[in-house]
Write a protein that binds this DNA or RNA. Structure first.
Lengths: 344, 344
DNA sequence: TATTAGCACTCTCAAGTGATGAGTGCTAAC
DNA sequence: GTTAGCACTCATCACTTGAGAGTGCTAATA
């Protein structure tokens, strides 16, 4: 168990390092008014904190910097909640003031403003379309052997796929097919669609439609291909402006990683409410060992749908980011719900 | 007018610098078998070429590097055409072997393979949707005061917009409206759609639909918002691996620029067939002064629709990139046309 | 007994030095 | 017209040095 003085010194050390990016020394700390101890006392405490694994030295006679364990303790126990500054609030509100109609537009704008306010990189995961329900099917023939299938969801999202038409299929065949789909499959989740099509609807279709086999293999394949959550970035280059990425090697690694969507998804905790923080190696990604990720989630209506992440150096301003993320995620939820409900 | 020997020396100098990224000295050049002159002779010629503005020195006693004028001369007069290597051809064909159905998927894959093959960054501009023609309208109500408007183009592209419904609009009103739109506006270019709606169709709609004014202001606005060409990147981080961007400052500038879509569009020449090369400052962009851009365009059917660009350092392998771009653009055109025509 | 002052020691950083090597320009010889 | 030779320039690297910041330890102090 840490003494109060140790807690104080750890907190002040982390705070200071977060803002200066320089190892903090005992003399420097003792000058602060919150710390009424002499450098020597502080040195002793720091030595203990280092022994306990909360602080590190960059070399034998440098000041201390927080270790990962130090950051972890800091965010778990020393992070006093804080209200967003009125400046920030103003900026955030200005985003939502202009009424936007498209979900993606709102999300993109949110990503931008988040990275502007924090000076870190933001990543927003778009709504998980697979959880949405079918509202309407439509099929529009383009040529005599190709057509586009359109699925409108109850959220107003539109999915569309090209697929091949078997030769000889009549317009009335297609009309029948659309009718059957609309009778049978309304309200089905998108991720269950292919399954439902095969289990429940295929028998009906088989009865009514000529060239059933060919049609289904092509249409079914089109429906199957899963729609990934869309990824929105804000300020990809912001990260590079922090001193920890002066190392070209690290900078390259980061940029490369951000281009690989599958790596990005590992940064997000399985979709759960609340704010989560992963520090350095907790991200299980070599390129991210000097980064921390703070995630939150947003909702549309009642449903937990998308995620927000801020990526910064481990030496990031946790307090500020947590506060902003908290405000932003609820504002975003409200705005997206408004768009969907049309109550504007 | 340059002598043959000067041409030879310029060419070999540029070639060498492109591959080594090191200033080339006279001794080094004279060792090559294509250059049967002594270092002293070469020094004299290089001095002349420098006076003429084709070569530069990095410092008083370094080897020479090509100036922008030198590169320009090189690509204009010394770039002998070349067939793609069979290795490259194999790789390219392997992309198109797996039959993809979605236009965007094909373009994205093309972007990737281009950047893999060249080790530079590729940018593909998606088809200019505004040139496509309306094939079918559809409107799907979501709640009692919001709906999604869907426009299917003859290319199989699907546009959709949320818009507000005036309260009290009946289902039959909407049906009538869709019918009128489909009677009047089929075949209209997307970029003329808003104009055509107001000029030709609004009178008809006014006659048949209740709450006309409110409906039109909301629907019209939804139709108006222009659809930008989509931008696809391949290998954004590739550029950072070339030695000219070891300078953190430059690297940051580049990454920042690539995140700003409006800057990207200035890199593309106004859509014209053939291959175009812009060297360094010819791009009129501060961040791009050490980069060259090579652009080509692709077509779907008959129409000039999209652009391909490769961004590399000015010291890029122009010959190879031009060759690859040539092959890729025609392959991509063929593939996209196949998808559209459905002749697969 | 807890805290602090003092001091020797360590390590980084920046500036300075000198040797090395690649390359040039010029001149004179071929 | 071409080339060999030579003096000169400049970047780079390894090495040294001094200043500054910080530590750990010990002894003095409250």
């Amino acid at each position: 168990m840490l003494t109060n003085r140790q807690l104080l010194i750890l907190q002040v050390t982390v705070d200071d390092f977060i803002h200066t990016a320089q190892p903090v020394g005992s003399r420097q700390l003792s000058k602060k008014e919150e710390v009424p101890y002499s450098p020597a006392t502080i040195r002793n405490e720091m030595a203990d904190l280092e022994e306990l694994g909360y602080l590190e030295k960059t070399h034998t006679s440098s000041g201390r910097i927080p270790s990962e364990k130090g950051y972890r303790f800091y965010v778990d126990h020393l992070l006093t909640p804080q209200l967003a500054s009125s400046d920030d609030m103003l900026q955030i509100q200005s985003v939502f003031k202009e009424r936007m109609v498209e979900t993606e537009q709102v999300i993109q704008k949110t990503a931008m403003i988040l990275s502007e306010l924090t000076s870190y990189t933001s990543i927003l995961l778009g709504p998980d379309v697979r959880k949405h329900r079918v509202k309407r099917f439509s099929i529009v023939p383009l040529t005599n052997d190709s057509a586009v299938a359109i699925i409108i969801t109850d959220s107003g999202h539109v999915e569309n796929r090209l697929f091949q038409l078997p030769i000889g299929l009549t317009a009335s065949d297609i009309e029948k097919m659309v009718n059957i789909l609309n009778e049978q499959l309304i309200g089905v989740h998108l991720h269950e669609l292919h399954h439902a099509l095969e289990k429940e609807t295929s028998a009906l279709l088989k009865q009514h439609i000529g060239r059933y086999g060919e049609l289904m293999s092509s249409f079914g394949a089109a429906i199957l291909s899963p729609q990934e959550e869309k990824v929105f970035y804000g300020g990809k280059s912001k990260l590079l402006h922090h001193p920890e990425f002066n190392d070209l090697q690290k900078a390259r690694g980061l940029i490369t990683m951000m281009d690989q969507v599958n790596q990005i998804s590992t940064l997000f905790s399985p979709n759960q409410a609340g704010i989560h923080i992963r520090i350095g190696s907790e991200n299980n990604l070599l390129e991210m060992e000097d980064c921390s990720v703070i995630t939150a989630s947003y909702t549309i209506g009642e449903e937990q749908t998308g995620s927000i992440a801020i990526i910064g150096p481990t030496r990031m301003d946790y307090r500020r980011v947590v506060t902003l993320l908290d405000v932003m995620s609820s504002d975003l939820s409200r705005e997206l719900t408004r768009i969907l409900r049309g109550s504007g």
